[in-house]
């Protein structure tokens, strides 16, 4: 077997912004993830949604303090995970 399997990373991230993961951070997330070569899912347990979809991210209803599971798959999975962490852990 060759090393052709895409990279798959997982992490847990806490939503820190006072208003939770609301529309604007969700938009920031969508924009920042846009160009990255990775499929990114976010959610709780097995209930994961596309992190690039504001709509689906909003349906998580994640308030401040919520811990979310993140799965990133693809060439730039690391960068994607880092990006999510940066945005969700921002205090604003």
């Amino acid at each position: 077997m060759r090393e052709e399997r895409p990279k798959r990373l997982e992490g847990e991230i806490e939503v820190r912004g006072a208003l939770g993961l609301h529309a604007r951070p969700a938009a920031r997330l969508a924009r920042a993830l846009g160009p990255l070569k990775a499929r990114v899912l976010i959610g709780r347990g097995e209930n994961l949604v596309d992190a690039r979809s504001i709509l689906d991210v909003l349906t998580l209803g994640a308030r401040a303090g919520t811990r979310l599971r993140v799965v990133a798959e693809g060439e730039e999975a690391e960068a994607a995970l880092e990006t999510i962490r940066r945005i969700l852990e921002a205090e604003a």
Partner: peptide, 16 residues
């Protein structure tokens, strides 16, 4: 502007 920006992203939402 930030509100509208979020709205625009919502329009272009891939899931929609």
């Amino acid at each position: 502007r930030a509100i509208l920006e979020a709205q625009r992203f919502l329009v272009e939402d891939p899931s929609l």
